[in-house]
């Protein structure tokens, strides 16, 4: 029976029929999705922090409202994704508990510091650029709620990269100091952005199954290559240099060749040793703990009001 269910499940996937929350699914499919979606949600809300840093310091009012709206969108994206994950049988609070305990991971990129205003540009341009590349295929993921959340996310995300690139463009057309700021931000964010696509394909053990289940549509290396190919001309327009001596056009492949990623650094950051891991997690835990009394009081008030309403109804009935 179990085997037939699993075969039928795979057949639906192969036919591009979406899986919905109450449909039968293999336990491993559910777990894989839950891990991926909750990690993605965590990344969105931890990702609010490095940019949130600069809200009070945004250089003008136009930039300030754009940044606020952008960071707010990330809260929204986290929310949509938590909601999608909740359909798989885990509550948001349970997922947050895993984030706060350090059990759950989030994207390593957010463990790097934002030092200058140009980092707002570089994050929008590169980090959101890489994220979009990862996310667009997820709009067709086999799990309905995930795919629908991603459609919403991608629709909203489209302004994020543009606002980042516009910041970079303005800096690059500005004073020499500003241009240096933009180059410095590119230097610091380029390689971490490249790492966002995850390990090389031959080192990515779960990819095959995810691809079979159509949770994943392109391999890590395919997406990374695509990212490099679109980023190079964008950097040229800005007039700044991607910090990779091995970067060059390969006519035969029709792609850019690029240097080797420092996977040791990647593994260290994943393991918790990035420059801001502790600070980021602490900020999330503090927000959660400082908000506990607020959440409790809201529930207490709702219950009180409900009780009062019932009392009034009983009195009226009597």
């Amino acid at each position: 029976m179990e085997i037939n269910l699993e075969e039928a499940f795979q057949k639906r996937i192969d036919e591009e029929i979406k899986i919905e929350p109450r449909d039968w699914m293999p336990e491993k499919y559910r777990k894989t999705l839950l891990r991926q979606i909750s990690q993605h949600a965590h990344s969105e809300i931890v990702g609010m922090l490095p940019e949130g840093n600069w809200i009070t310091r945004a250089p003008n009012l136009r930039r300030k409202v754009a940044l606020l709206a952008k960071v707010q969108d990330e809260a929204g994206h986290g929310l949509y994704l938590y909601s999608a994950a909740e359909t798989l049988g885990m509550t948001r609070d349970e997922m947050l508990a895993e984030l706060h305990s350090g059990k759950a991971k989030y994207s390593s990129i957010f463990n790097y510091p934002t030092l200058t205003w140009a980092d707002m540009g570089a994050i929008g341009w590169l980090v959101d650029g890489a994220a979009i590349m990862n996310q667009v295929p997820l709009c067709r993921a086999s799990y309905g709620p995930y795919a629908r959340a991603m459609v919403r996310v991608c629709k909203e995300e489209s302004f994020h990269q543009r606002q980042g690139y516009e910041i970079m463009l303005t800096l690059c057309q500005g004073t020499p100091e500003q241009k240096a700021m933009a180059q410095d931000a590119l230097n610091r964010w380029w390689w971490p952005s490249m790492m966002m696509f995850g390990p090389n394909d031959d080192n990515s053990p779960n990819s095959a199954q995810s691809t079979k289940w159509k949770i994943k549509r392109f391999s890590n290396d395919e997406l990374r290559q695509k990212f490099v190919d679109v980023s190079v001309p964008q950097a040229e327009i800005l007039g700044i240099t991607i910090p990779d001596a091995d970067l060059k056009w390969n006519e035969a492949r029709g792609h850019y060749d690029f240097g080797v990623i420092n996977w040791d650094e990647f593994n260290q950051v994943v393991a918790g040793n990035g420059p801001c891991n502790k600070q980021r997690l602490k900020a999330r835990v503090d927000a959660w703990e400082n908000g506990a009394w607020v959440r409790e009081a809201a529930v207490a008030y709702a219950e009180k009001r409900e009780k009062r309403k019932q009392n009034t109804e009983n009195t009226n009935a009597a």
Binding site: A69, A75, A292
Partner: peptide, 27 residues
Amino acid sequence: GEWCGHGPVLEQDIALTNIALDLIGEA
């Protein structure tokens, strides 16, 4: 705006940021 990313619950983080955006928009 200082609250953005630090609210007691995601929904209210978003709500307060909406207020911040209204206020700065008015300003």
